[in-house]
Design a protein around this nucleic acid. Structure first.
Lengths: 139, 139
DNA sequence: CTACAACCTCTAGTCGCTAGAGGTTCAAGG
DNA sequence: CCTTGAACCTCTAGCGACTAGAGGTTGTAG
């Protein structure tokens, strides 16, 4: 029970400023302080922050992480909700991948049609200027 | 030369507030005003805003769009730079797709291992809590 | 004239951080 | 013990691309 914020940061690879941020949004509780007002953490906080960091890396947003953390504190509850959160997130990732893939195709067409001549003949500029040139699904 | 901001918004599918935002960051010039201080636009601004919207849909950031617009105003210049901007953006989209695809695979593994039992046995929660369970490349 | 939609400026918020100013505490070394 | 510098503290504000609401004015149809 004597870990400074810097040490916690080194152990979890989460920046000091980010730890403070997570405290400000109550993702981690306010820790006890030393006599000099410095935060002091224990091993439980190391685990909690690792969980958070891992979830962030997988793209879960703060609110979802908050829910997952609450669930992890209640081992006898059903985990259907955790499953639901993960599936919902996965569906979002799928959507984003599809969107980016369509975008990439459009950019590919644009770039391939660019003959490196004058702007006046430029397919990059022309495609952006003229919706009809674009096969993008948004239109 | 008599298009209100609302009409411009309807013609371009760019929100009024977003048009004002684009003006604030000088992506579109400040237009002349009516006697009542209301913005008045012409067909040139309709085209410019359509260009912007289209580029935004393709994920170009504001600065890149600013550059592309500047280029489109000079038809006799080389378009090598427009090509470079588009290629750079396409590389970024590729990176993001790869990243999300790896993420998706990880989430898939997590979700498939979830047996809908108790939180204490939950693979979603367990994977987040324990780095060793995760094959994610970030580790 | 009235009423209401559409316009205006300004401020602040979203999300998840990130950075810097200005100050205090801690701990190693002399 | 003193000094020094790293690490800590709080607070404010910024990033990017919008977005929204408060409080007020203008335009136009009925």
């Amino acid at each position: 029970m004597d870990i400074s914020i810097g040490e916690l940061s080194r152990r979890t690879a989460v920046k000091v400023a980010t730890i403070r941020y997570y405290e400000s949004v109550a993702l981690v509780p306010c820790p006890p302080r030393s006599e000099g007002r410095q935060r002091r953490y224990g091993e439980h906080e190391v685990s909690r922050l690792s969980f958070i960091r891992h979830a962030r890396e997988l793209g879960f947003d703060i609110e979802a992480i908050r829910e997952l953390l609450a669930m992890s504190a209640q081992p006898d509850q059903s985990c259907a909700e955790a499953d639901r959160i993960a599936r919902r997130h996965m569906a979002e990732v799928d959507r984003r991948i599809s969107q980016l893939t369509a975008l990439r195709a459009e950019l590919q067409r644009m770039v391939e049609a660019c003959g490196h001549g004058r702007v006046g003949d430029c397919r990059v500029i022309e495609t952006l200027a003229n919706h009809d040139q674009c096969e993008h699904a948004s239109h």
